[in-house]
Computed example of a mutant assay.
Amino acid sequence: MRKKLVAGNWKMHGSHSANAELLSGILAARPFACDVAVCVPFPYLSEAAVALAGSDVRWGAQDCSQHDKGAFTGEVSASMLAEFGCRYVIVGHSERRAMHGETDAVVAEKAKAVLARGLTPIVCVGETLGQREQGTAQDTVKRQLSAVIHALGHCVGEMVVAYEPVWAIGTGVVATPEQAQEMHALIRAQLHAATPHAEAMKLLYGGSMKPENAASLLAQQDIDGGLIGGAALKHADFVAICRAT
């Protein structure tokens, strides 16, 4: 039985006061039946580490460089994140792919860099509305995942995969449980061909999961948790999703 994981992606949100309220609300609601994590903006990693120290709530980052050090102004390396006690690093989020031009190869190198520092990459894959309408959704996801599988080699089983239908992020639209399960099953099958650990790997759904739809999504055979965006910014909503596991 795979233990579920609910990871909050705060994106570019947060302040000292808002963070304190959110984290204290999450901590007060423990214990949870699932693993719980928050992926916060870089400037707030230190206060997240302090606030969550000694608890079973993990913290992580939303991106990192594929390079370990060097003249890369504005970049943050996985080795730096490790010093803040991060457990997870999101790589390949659709916003990074679309707004920052991250290719499948770059995402794969980032995942490799994260693993090299003993952290767990949450690798995001997913199709746009256009790709779904054109019937290329599955080919798109398989291509994105294939690049990471090739880069990680025998370490593939150590990553977490998050399926995020781009057309369901921040739109209020959500994939039906059946649509989400179909893609998660496809991902699981592709992982089975690459690693003997596929059945133990966590696959998260990352497209507008909310308290109202969490239970039906999490009930699906291959959905092992959620990568939560907007609902991760309100502790009551985030806690409700954790409880739905």
Rank of each mutant, 00 (worst) to 15 (best):
E212C: 05
A71R: 06
A116K: 12
S216E: 15
A116Q: 13
C155K: 14
A214S: 13
A37N: 06
A189M: 01
I223V: 15
Q144M: 11
C34P: 01
A113Q: 13
A116I: 09
E199G: 11
G172L: 14
M159L: 15
E95Q: 15
A175P: 07
R188C: 08
G8K: 06
V239S: 03
K234R: 12
H93S: 09
E178T: 13
R243I: 04
S208H: 08
R188A: 13
Q181T: 05
L152A: 08
F238H: 10
Q179C: 05
D139Q: 15
K3S: 04
H16D: 06
F72C: 00
I90V: 14
S146D: 08
F32G: 02
A180T: 05
A168V: 12
L119T: 07
Y88T: 11
A82I: 00
V173T: 07
V114K: 12
H192T: 07
S55D: 10
V50K: 14
G153Y: 03
F42R: 00
A98D: 12
V156E: 07
G14D: 06
C64T: 08
G118K: 06
A82E: 06
L23T: 07
R243W: 04
L217Q: 13
T195R: 04
P121N: 10
L52N: 12
W59G: 15
M99Q: 14
K11Y: 00
T136F: 02
A236N: 09
A53E: 12
P121F: 01
L52S: 13
K4V: 01
D237E: 14
A137G: 03
Q221K: 14
V161M: 06
L204E: 03
A20C: 01
I122S: 11
L5M: 02
N213R: 14
D104L: 02
A193P: 02
A18Q: 09
T245H: 07
H93P: 05
M209D: 01
Q62I: 09
G8Y: 03
T120P: 05
S208M: 11
L45C: 08
V173R: 14
V107H: 05
S24Q: 15
G92E: 11
C34T: 02
A189S: 14
H150Y: 02
M159C: 09
A108P: 09
V125A: 08
A98R: 10
G229L: 04
G54A: 09
E199C: 05
I187H: 09
L81S: 13
A53Y: 10
H192K: 13
A71S: 14
K142R: 15
E95W: 03
T176F: 00
